[in-house]
C-alpha cells in the first residue's frame, strides 16, 4: 500500500546543503505496523514529514513515495491536501504545543471530518463525543468545549489521536507519540494506539528512539542511523538476532527490570553522539562510533547483507560480530 523507494531528503542549512535521509526504502502493507527507531537526529521525523508532504521549506526530497499507486512526491498540493488527515493521519511528538491554544478541543477534532466531508453538520457533535470517548477522555460532554491548556499532556495526546483517527485513515504515522509524556502515561497511550489500530485495521508507522517501545508494538522494524537504514527485519527475527553494531548498542541501552533493582549495574550506552547532518561521513555512517570499524567502512557504504529471510543488515563486519 505504501512503498518508499530510494527516498533522499536534502536540507539547505546555514552550513550548506546536506542529505539528512539517504536511499531509504521500505514497504508498508495494509493492516501492518512498522517501526522506525534511532537516536535523536537520525532523520526519523523528516521521513515521516516527507510521507505527509510537509517537509520544512528549506528541504526537498527525491525518490518515490508510492501510496495506493500514486507517487506522493509528484502530486500537487491540492491532491496532497485531500490525502493528509484523510487517508494518512499523523500524531506529533509534542502534545503540549501541537494543539491550537485558541480553539476548543471539540472544534479541533471536528475540523478534519468537516474538511474531508466525513460527516454531516448535524452529526458532528455526536461524532466528536464518540471519538473523545474512544480515546478515553473522561466526561466528553464537558471536555468538548475545553481549551487545550485545561488538559494534561496525556489528555492532549489522546486528543491528537482522536484527531488523527477521526477520518479513519489507512495509515497512521505516530512520531514519538509518548516521548514527551510520563512513563506511566506512555504505556497507556501506546496501548490505546495499538488497540485502535487493530480495531480499525489501519497500518501504522511508529517512530521512537526506544527500541523497547518499538519491539513491543510493531511487526517490522527499521533501525536508522545518520539518515540511513542500518538494519531492518521482522520484529521477532530482528530482536532474536540483533546484528548491526548500532542496533546492538540501542538494545543494550534499554533498561530492564533487573537493572533497576541492582543499581550497581549501569546502563550501557553507545559512546559518542549522532553526527550533524552536514558531518555525516562517506562510507558507513556509523564508522565514527563503531568498535569494529575497519578501512573498508571508511571507503564504502555497506550493502545489504541478508541475515535470514526478512531480516537484513548493512555492515561489513557482521562475521566479526558473531
Amino acid at each position: 500500500m505504501l512503498d518508499i523507494k530510494n527516498l533522499n531528503i536534502n536540507l539547505n542549512t546555514v552550513y550548506g546543503d546536506a542529505t539528512a535521509v539517504r536511499n531509504l526504502s521500505f514497504k508498508l502493507e495494509k493492516g501492518k505496523t512498522l517501526g522506525i527507531v534511532g537516536e535523536s537526529g537520525c532523520g526519523k521525523s523528516l521521513t515521516a514529514l516527507a510521507v505527509m508532504g510537509l517537509l520544512p521549506e528549506n528541504s526537498w526530497s527525491t525518490g518515490e513515495i508510492i501510496f495506493n499507486n500514486k507517487n506522493l512526491l509528484s502530486l500537487n498540493e491540492d491532491k496532497l491536501c485531500k490525502i493528509r488527515g484523510n487517508s494518512i493521519g499523523m500524531i506529533f511528538q509534542e502534545p503540549m504545543t501541537s494543539l491550537n491554544p485558541l480553539h476548543t478541543i471539540g472544534k479541533q477534532i471536528a475540523e478534519p471530518m468537516i474538511l474531508h466531508g466525513k460527516v454531516t453538520r448535524s452529526m458532528i457533535k455526536k461524532e466528536v463525543l464518540n471519538l473523545l470517548d474512544m480515546v478515553g477522555i473522561p466526561d466528553p460532554l464537558k471536555r468538548i468545549s475545553s481549551f487545550p491548556h485545561e488538559l494534561s499532556g496525556g489528555q492532549r495526546q489522546r486528543v491528537m489521536i482522536a484527531m488523527a483517527l477521526s477520518c479513519k485513515p489507512e495509515i497512521l504515522i505516530a512520531d514519538e507519540p509518548t516521548t514527551a509524556l510520563d512513563v506511566t502515561i506512555q504505556k497507556q497511550i501506546l496501548d490505546l494506539i495499538k488497540d485502535l489500530i487493530d480495531e480499525f485495521g489501519m497500518s501504522m508507522i511508529l517512530i521512537s528512539h526506544d527500541l523497547g517501545v518499538i519491539a513491543n508494538n510493531v511487526q517490522e522494524i527499521i533501525v536508522m542511523y545518520g539518515g540511513v537504514c542500518v538494519e531492518k527485519g521482522y520484529t521477532k527475527k530482528l530482536i532474536n538476532n540483533i546484528s548491526h553494531p548500532y542496533s546492538q548498542g540501542l538494545f543494550s541501552a534499554i533498561p530492564t527490570l533487573e537493572m533497576q533493582e541492582d543499581s550497581e549495574q549501569r546502563l550501557k550506552t553507545i559512546p559518542g553522539s549522532v553526527p550533524e547532518i552536514t558531518e555525516i561521513p562517506k562510507g558507513c555512517t556509523f564508522q565514527g562510533r563503531c568498535e569494529y570499524v575497519s578501512d573498508i567502512c571508511v571507503k564504502n557504504s555497506p550493502n545489504s547483507v541478508k541475515i535470514s529471510e526478512d531480516h537484513e543488515a548493512y555492515c561489513f563486519n557482521l562475521d566479526k560480530l558473531n
Binding site: 505527509m52 510537509l54 488527515g85 491550537n100 478534519p112 474538511l115 474531508h116 484527531m163
Partner: peptide, 8 residues
C-alpha cells in the same frame, strides 16, 4: 503543522 496534517 498539525492543521496542515489535517489536510488544510
Amino acid at each position: 503543522r498539525t492543521a496542515r496534517a489535517k489536510g488544510l
